[in-house]
Design a protein around this nucleic acid. Sequence first.
DNA 1: TATCATTGCGTTATTATGACACAATGATAA
DNA 2: TTATCATTGTGTCATAATAACGCAATGATA
Lengths: 256, 256
Amino acid sequence: MSFEKEIKEIFAKGHEKYLRSVSVDCIIFGFHENELKVLLLQAKYAGIWALPGGFILKEEHMDDAAKRILQQRTGVDDIYMQQFYVFSEPGRSTKKANKQFLKNVGIEMEDSWMFDRFITVGYTALVDFSKVQPVTDILSSDCKWFNIHDIPEMILDHKNILDKALDNLRLQLNYHPLGYNLLPEKFTMPELQKLYETILDRKLDRRNFQRKIMGTGILKRLNETKKGVAHKAPYYYKFDLRKYQKALKGGMGFEL
Amino acid sequence: MSFEKEIKEIFAKGHEKYLRSVSVDCIIFGFHENELKVLLLQAKYAGIWALPGGFILKEEHMDDAAKRILQQRTGVDDIYMQQFYVFSEPGRSTKKANKQFLKNVGIEMEDSWMFDRFITVGYTALVDFSKVQPVTDILSSDCKWFNIHDIPEMILDHKNILDKALDNLRLQLNYHPLGYNLLPEKFTMPELQKLYETILDRKLDRRNFQRKIMGTGILKRLNETKKGVAHKAPYYYKFDLRKYQKALKGGMGFEL
DNA sequence: TATCATTGCGTTATTATGACACAATGATAA
DNA sequence: TTATCATTGTGTCATAATAACGCAATGATA
């Protein structure tokens, strides 16, 4: 199907396939080179950036819609995702944006479900950066990672959504374990600490951090040290999945 | 407008007024006689109970929709409300329920936006029990308070929504102050403690509770004691609004 | 072989928490 | 009038959690 035809299809008949007035936007976090990253799409024509998003199929759970969207953008399956907030400002003006988009593509259309007002549900995802292959979608010309401190101009209220997602992530950090989805299987303690420091945006004491993390029991130390470092070699660790899952539900019971 | 005509209007033309496929359900908590209560509506014909809910006007913020619904049910304005979760199971089958309802009323209708699948956004509200005048709506035959431990059969997934709301309320308790919207302006320390105990569903140590609550600074003790009690008279307290609001945003920094 | 950044493991002072003691209060009963 | 009693306000103490910091071990590099 040609690009133009596909767009036409979505605008003209999407409401037969998807729920009306509701969209899903994903904030996909990754961790790479000691920096927290977010995966963004560049909207075609407009040129500015957007969160990966999509719609909910008529018989689909919203969680599955979010997973589907994320799978399509990253190629990654089996991911930790959760909704964190619904954005419903009447002034979001998706209508205006979608009309402008159609105009840019060169399609005339009198009416479309895409011109309705939309509310959007924000989902946060944490993914292993190294496993992700960013994939562009039909509405986008580019798909790539951005440092959390270097976010470009974004469409609609997407910057606001991203900020809220970050706030939420920081809150979660206090009550849930974190890292299993963001780090490779084996990692060192300094790496894990750096992840926490990056998200919280502040320094943590190396020794106290180790004590608390180990206190939760979610980590297992391997009999293996990192090679090729110009100083004392740190041990590798990996997550104890059973205890990790347990802590996910029951909370960790400490503050950083 | 007659009852039947009004129903017809909603089913036939509601989509011109409201957003499609999205509803709002309110879990309205109140505190009375040392018991946590929830305000429920009795669905007409079906006879079983439901959360007060409604739809979002085409140009309305979802928060305002929730407030509007709550205002109509309770007569109470200026309320602490917040969304806490979106329920989107495809099997919620609002379609079936709404068709059955129409049939019960005796109206024939081929198609309606009300037969679409709906997702619903849950809102929790905390209200001063004594100020509430429960009001029935057009779809309901009764509206009253239920003890949280004595919930009747409910339609759809409303029992599940209520349970999630309670979980959420308990979680919030650890990080946010609570009580301003649930208690009268003046109250005693034992009353506040009872509120916490009721929500958490466990006993707290009287002396430690006082120490921690006062430690947050959100309370001001008045130079006035409760009269007519057959023992030592407790002081009245009221909330220090400035510090209360601050704690709402920044968290309280303690565990109960 | 010395240097150096970094790691693993530890100590100490401070603060927070849970469990409990005791005197004060004020209506009710004797 | 006085004793009783449930309940409140305040305080103590042992224990646990937290923050701040010390020091020897490691292993590539100079």
